[in-house]
Amino acid sequence: MSTQMSTPMIEQLAGKGAARAARRKLHGVDKRPGWLTYCALAAVVLISFYPIWFTILLASSNAGEIARNPIPSLIPAGEFLTNVTRVIESDIKFWTALANSIIVSTVTAISVVFFSTLAGYSFAKLRFRGSNGLLVFVIATMAVPTQLSIVPLFILMSELDWVGKLQAVIVPGMVTAFGVFWMTQYLREALPFELIEAARVDGASMIRTFWSVAMPAARPAAAMLALFTFVGSWTNFFWPFIILGSANPTLPVALQLLQASYFKDYSLIMAGVVVATLPLVILFAVAGRQLVAGIMQGAVKG
C-alpha cells in the first residue's frame, strides 16, 4: 500500500523536474559551457591521466630499457602482454587474490552504503534524544590515529580466530564514520522534510519511509560512497597484509610480492599495477554512467 502512496509523489516531482528542465533552456542556466571550461578541465584530466599513462609505458617496457631511460619515451613499447602474463603466472596466487579482492570490496561497499544511508537518514531527518551528541561522537571516532590500532585489532582478530580469514578485513570496514557523516550531510540538504511527512501521513512505517523516500533521494551520494568505498577497499594494503598475509591475499598484498628482490623490475611491478587498476577502470566505465544518471536524478528531486 504505502509504496504505491509514495511512488506517485516521486513521479510527480520527477514530472515537475522535467517541466523545470524545459524551463531552464529559456533562462539559459544550463547552456553549454564555453571553451575556457573545457580547457581548464582538460588540463586537470591530463594531469590526472599522466600517472596511468606512465604506468602503462613502464608496463610495456623491460627492466633494461627502464634503467637506460629514466624518463620513458611517450610511446609504449611492445612487451605489455608478456609482462602481464609474467604477473599472472608468477607464484603469487593471482586468481585467489583477485577473487578475494572482489569479494572484500563488493561486500564492504554494499554494506557501507546501506548502513551509512540508514544512519545518515536517522541523523539528518529523524528527531531523537541525543542525536547531536551521537553524531559528534561518530565524527570524533575518525580522529583516532590508526597506526597503533593494528596491534589491538590483531589481538582481537586472534581471539575471534579470524587471522588469515576474509572477515577480518571485511568486518572492521562494514560501516564507516566517513560514510555516516557523508550521508548525514548530503541528506540534510537533498531530502525535503515534506516528502518524509507525506509518506508518514500515508501510513508508511519508518523503515518503509526510509526505503521508498530516503533511499531514492540518497542515490547519487550512495553511488559516490559506493565507488569511494570500493576503491578504498580495493587499494588497501597494510591491514590485509598484516592479517591475511600471502597465504590468502588480496590483490595489493599479492602484487606487492612482485617487488621481492633486491633489484626491482619496474616493468613487472607496473604490469601488476595495470592489472590491479583495470577492474577499477571497468567499474568506472560501468558505474560512471550510473553515477551521472544518479546525480541527475538527485538534482531533479531537489
Binding site: 586537470v44 584530466v45 611491478i269
Partner: peptide, 23 residues
C-alpha cells in the same frame, strides 16, 4: 555545467585516486 561527455570528465578527475601508491 552542462558539459558534453559528462562521464568522461567526472571519471577523469577521479583517476588519481585509483592509481596504486607504488606508481
Amino acid at each position: 555545467t552542462n558539459l558534453r561527455a559528462k562521464t568522461f570528465w567526472r571519471m577523469g578527475v577521479l583517476l588519481p585516486y585509483v592509481v596504486a601508491p607504488v606508481a
